[in-house]
Amino acid sequence: MSQTRKFMYINRHAPYGTVYALEGLEVVLIGAAFEQDVCMAFIGDGVFQLKQGQDTTDSGMKNFSPAYRALGDYEVNRLYVERESLEERGLTEADLMPLTWEDEEDDWAEKPSIQLVSRAQLSGLLEEQDVIFNF
């Protein structure tokens, strides 16, 4: 196996209105099998993917928001959310689903997966990646 590379999945679309969010999530879950160093970034309308309280019972679509809670099991532990994008949309971190992962090295302690980052920080993170996927 070649050395681990840094993968970032950028999510810029709201869920449901288009298929980008669901497709992106599926690629992340499938890609996790390759055991690379994976993170996700939520920018622009992509932050809406993590909105709490999604309920599709009246609209006949599949609610795939619970699957984000499984990302920790797939060792996708870093979800960067751009702070400016949240603010432009009148949202705060409290509007997002509380997502966690369990640290095996630390007696399975539950740790938060979502990290709010500024646009400037995110810009730096982009530079660090070996591979970037866009959805």
Binding site: Y16, Q54, D55, D58, S59, R89
Partner: peptide, 29 residues
Amino acid sequence: VGTAHAAMLDQALKEVSIYALGPDLKARG
């Protein structure tokens, strides 16, 4: 409410009626 576009809608509401579809709001939380 409280978004970068909210002022534009506040202004528009003086002239037009604006509705939002409940099931689509609910789906998006």
